[in-house]
């Protein structure tokens, strides 16, 4: 059993790793063979060098972007769940409010971001707000769907046994909603990073709260293309980590009963 699981893990890592080395090798080889200048397409070694050289600035920027991302994700989870709870209370409330939730979702945040940056004076708050506007929708939609997806037979059983509202919520509604809620959080975590980067682009904030998007903009102005790639690499890495962590949490919380379904 463990041998099989270990084998699967090795296969899951070895395959992608081989692809990565192959692509990096081709890339490096192409840059060397045709002597492509780094300002057109930097070789992987150039990017690695930039990453090393600018490590202090880039890690600071990474921290800044991650702080915005995680704050936005945290707020999305809390506020999104609360909104879903309010919506699920009764049909009239849901019908009345849902259109505005959808409006919020379909309006591109890139278009709204400049307005937010003007209206909200605190830069950090503005960034978090932009990222949250993008990230909150999956939490709302999934939690709402989850809270509604109750086994009707179990609901009848709870009613026959005169369960209180609280008992029904705690023992039936919340556990039933958990899988969809967690799936929503996972999508939301990716969107929070997208939102943070978009907001940083729009706000264009430098100084102490400069994030990775600002580093990309700056590198572009300075024609420091390797550094641009280095910042991009860090954003991707952050996205992968977020995805990994949320997937891990999801598996840990649901593994006991979802895996065997």
């Amino acid at each position: 059993m463990t041998g099989g699981a270990f084998g699967a893990m090795v296969r899951g890592i070895v395959g992608p790793a081989l692809v990565l080395f192959f692509v990096l090798g081709l890339w490096q080889g192409a840059c060397d063979a045709w002597s492509i200048p780094p300002y057109v397409l930097p070789a992987p070694t150039d990017i690695g060098h930039a990453l090393w050289r600018d490590a202090p600035t880039l890690t600071h920027a990474l921290g800044s972007t991650l702080l915005v991302t995680l704050s936005a994700l945290g707020l999305s989870i809390v506020i999104g769940s609360v909104i879903a709870f309010i919506l699920v209370q009764n049909v009239v409330i849901e019908r009345s409010l849902m259109p505005y939730v959808v409006v919020m979702q379909v309006t591109p945040v890139v278009a709204v971001a400049p307005l937010i940056v003007i209206l909200v004076h605190n830069t950090f708050a503005a960034l978090v707000l932009c990222a949250m506007l993008i990230a909150i929708f999956p939490v709302i939609a999934n939690t709402l769907q989850g809270l509604k997806s109750i086994d009707p037979g179990l609901a009848d059983y709870f009613r026959l046994h005169r369960a209180t509202r609280w008992q029904t919520l705690w023992r039936l509604r919340l556990p039933s909603a958990l899988p969809l809620f967690l799936a929503g959080v996972r999508v939301s975590s990716g969107l929070a990073l997208v939102g943070a980067v978009v907001a940083e682009f729009v706000a264009g904030t430098g100084g102490n709260s400069a994030g990775l998007a600002y580093e990309i903009l700056q590198s572009g102005f300075q024609m420091d293309i390797p550094r641009m790639f280095a910042a991009l690499f860090l954003i991707t890495l952050a996205g992968l980590c977020l995805f990994g962590v949320t997937t891990g949490v999801q598996n840990r919380l649901l593994g006991r009963w979802m895996a065997s379904r």
Partner: peptide, 20 residues
Amino acid sequence: GLAGHRVTLVPQDATLMPWR
């Protein structure tokens, strides 16, 4: 006094809570 669970139901499907 049916809060005392004198009546109970076995539904069509087992309708168990998969998470418990």
